Amino acid sequence: MAQSLQGKVAFITGGARGIGRATALALAKEGVHVGLLARTESALKDVAAEIEELGVNAAYAVADVSLQEEAEKAVASLTEALGTADILINNAGIASFGTVLEMEPAEWKRILDVNVMGTYHVTRAILPQLIEKNGGDIVTIASTNGLNGAATSSAYSASKFAVIGFTESLAQEVRRNNIRVSALAPSTVATDLAFDLDLIKENDTSKTIQPEDIAEMVVSQLKLHPRVYTKTATLIATNPF
C-alpha cells in the first residue's frame, strides 16, 4: 500500500552532492519540501535552487554534523524555514582507506565522528519532532562495508557497522511512536567520493549503482504505508551484475 509524500518535509544530511542531492531532487519531484545540511554553502545553494525549480520549498544550513552544536543549530534553522520534519535522511559520510597501522588515529577518529556521531547528533535533534507528530521516517545510508569488514577499511567498516546497529536499536525504541527507521546498505555508488578514492573509474560506471538508483529506493521505502515495516530495518542494495 503506497502513501503520498506530497507536502511532507524532509531533512537530508550530506545533501549537497551524490546520494544526498539525488534523493533531494527525487523527493522534490514527489512534492516534498526539502531542507539540506552539508559543509559547502555554494553547492547547497545550487541544489536548493534546483529543488525550488520543481515547485517546492527548499532551505539549507551549513554544518559539520560531527559537531553537536552545529548539527542542532542546523536542524533549528531548517525547522524555522520549513516547519517540523516528517522525514530524515542521514546521508552525510566520509571515507578513506589504509591499514590499521597506516591510518593515523586522528583520521580514523574523524571517520567515526562524521559517520557515526553525525548520524546520532542529527537524529537526536530531529527525533522529538517525529515523536510529537507520532509518526515519520528515518532512513540512514549505510554500506555493505557495515555487513562485512575488508582489509584497509577498518575505520569505514566500523562506522557503518555502528550505523546499522544504531538503526536497528532505534527502530525498536520508536516503533511505538509510529516512526519507521530503515537503513540502506549499498555497495559502491558512483559518487564524487567513490571517484576521489579511485574505487571506480570515470569511464567505467555502466555496472555501478548510480546515486539516482539509491534515491529511487529511498522514495520507494518512504511511499510504503507507514504501518509497513521491513523485517530487520535494513534494506540491502548490491551492484546489479
Rank of each mutant, 00 (worst) to 15 (best):
I214Y: 00
T188D: 11
A158R: 05
M103C: 11
S77V: 06
V174Q: 00
Y156N: 06
T84F: 03
A190I: 05
E50K: 12
N90D: 05
A26S: 13
L170F: 07
V100L: 15
I209S: 01
F166H: 08
P128D: 08
D113S: 12
E41S: 11
L67W: 03
L193T: 06
A85F: 02
K133M: 10
L5R: 01
R39H: 11
A194I: 06
L36W: 03
L199R: 13
A26K: 13
V116M: 14
Y156E: 07
V163A: 12
E52N: 10
G146N: 11
K160G: 09
D86G: 00
A71K: 04
G165V: 12
A10E: 06
A215S: 04
N203L: 00
E216F: 11
R39C: 12
T191N: 03
K133C: 06
L67A: 13
A92I: 07
A150N: 13
D213V: 04
M217Y: 10
V100H: 10
N57Q: 14
H121S: 04
I51P: 05
R124A: 05
G55Y: 10
I51C: 03
G55N: 09
A74V: 01
V47R: 02
T79I: 00
F11N: 04
V32K: 00
Y120E: 04
E168M: 15
A190L: 09
T238F: 13
E72K: 04
T79G: 11
A237T: 10
A63M: 02
K223P: 07
F241G: 15
R39K: 15
G55W: 04
V114G: 02
I19Y: 02
T84Y: 03
A22G: 04
I236Y: 13
V56A: 01
Y60C: 07
S154M: 14
T205W: 10
P211S: 03
V139M: 08
A151M: 15
A171N: 12
T205C: 09
G55H: 06
G165S: 14
S154Y: 11
K109E: 14
T144K: 14
V219K: 03
L127G: 02
N91S: 05
I200T: 01
V116N: 10
K231M: 15
G15H: 07
I138G: 06
G7H: 08
N90H: 02
V218R: 08
E72Q: 08
S77I: 05
G15S: 01
K29L: 13
A71E: 00
P240D: 08
G18I: 01
Q6T: 12
A16N: 12
I87D: 03
D113L: 01
R21Y: 01
G83D: 10
A63P: 01
I179W: 05
E50Q: 15
V62M: 11
A183I: 06
D46N: 12
T79D: 08
I19T: 02
A106P: 00
